[in-house]
């Protein structure tokens, strides 16, 4: 076996990174709107915590407790934003190409589907980090959050390792627009909504109603969000969070091959039934 083929695949994965960077630059107006929308959403969530006493008309929580609630919701909103960007970038890779009309060209090219996904996932990580950093800075400045205790290295590592399993779920999600040209994209939004509901983004998972609390156990996002809360709010170190990261890594190592396998099955089905054609 020569090295030509793996080197070709590695180089080809950059095609998807470069293409997505170019698309982001060309759609810069949309990117500004998207960041503003995300900031507004995140601020709205954190404002709920800051105004909790005013909302119930009494001093239900002390100032310290309000600050803790603000941090709890702020971290949930920011981390979820990152995970959602990674998930969406991967799961929308097919919907986007269908919309542009390039899906057949990309699928005809001599690159492995895993190469296609690696390139898309690499872009999603960088794009998600930059996007989330902007939102984080705005929230920290607006609410004057006290992050003095935070271990940023531990939080970043949990985020990076946790992204792997979200990429795996995203790849599975990307199969839906492949199989259902008209409604597949909306179906991926259902997966995203389910993840936000069960993963303790705005609630403590074990305090949620019973079916949701049980489902939260199987969502990798639960452990990512909890791990980052521990790092940013409680100051847990890399050593403290090592077991969480190991679990997330294991989940990612299972979910990515499963995702690729599911997608390959979907691609074969699409080729048998003619669903790669843009109009479906």
């Amino acid at each position: 076996m020569t090295l030509a083929a793996p080197i070709h695949e590695l180089r080809a994965s950059y095609a998807f990174v470069e293409r997505n960077i170019n698309l982001t630059k060309r759609y810069w107006g949309w990117e500004v709107v998207w960041v503003l929308y995300t900031i507004a959403n995140s601020l709205a969530v954190v404002l709920i915590a800051q105004n909790v006493n005013a909302a119930v008309g009494a001093t239900a929580l002390s100032d310290l407790q309000v600050d803790q609630l603000v941090l709890f919701l702020a971290v949930g909103a920011i981390v979820w934003h990152y995970l959602a960007v990674v998930f969406e970038t991967v799961s929308d890779m097919i919907s986007w190409e269908r919309w542009e009309g390039t899906i057949e060209y990309t699928f005809m090219a001599p690159v492995r589907r895993s190469t296609h996904m690696v390139g898309t996932a690499l872009f999603s990580l960088v794009y998600g980090f930059i996007h989330t950093a902007v939102v984080l800075v705005v929230i920290v400045v607006v609410f004057d959050l006290n992050m003095g205790n935070a271990d940023y290295l531990a939080a970043s590592l949990v985020l990076l390792v946790g992204s792997v399993s979200l990429i795996g779920i995203g790849i599975m999600g990307a199969t839906l627009p492949l199989l259902y040209p008209e409604r597949g994209m909306q179906m991926t939004h259902v997966i995203q909504a389910t993840l936000v509901l069960i993963s303790g983004v705005y609630a403590v998972p074990k305090e949620m109603p019973e079916p949701l609390a049980t489902l939260s156990v199987i969502s990798p996002a639960t452990y990512v969000i909890q791990g980052i809360r521990d790092a940013l709010i409680n100051g847990d170190s890399v050593a403290d969070l090592w077991p969480t990261m190991l679990g997330l890594l294991a989940a990612g190592l299972v979910l990515i091959p499963v995702g690729v396998q599911v997608f390959s099955w979907g691609e074969r089905h699409a080729k048998r039934t003619g669903r790669l054609k843009r109009s479906g």
Partner: peptide
């Protein structure tokens, strides 16, 4: 079939890298 917002150079570089 092209990415409509991208230029011919950007679209063709995408194809060139894949091939």
């Amino acid at each position: 079939s092209f990415f409509k917002k991208l230029s011919p150079m950007e679209n063709l570089m995408y194809g060139a890298r894949m091939y």
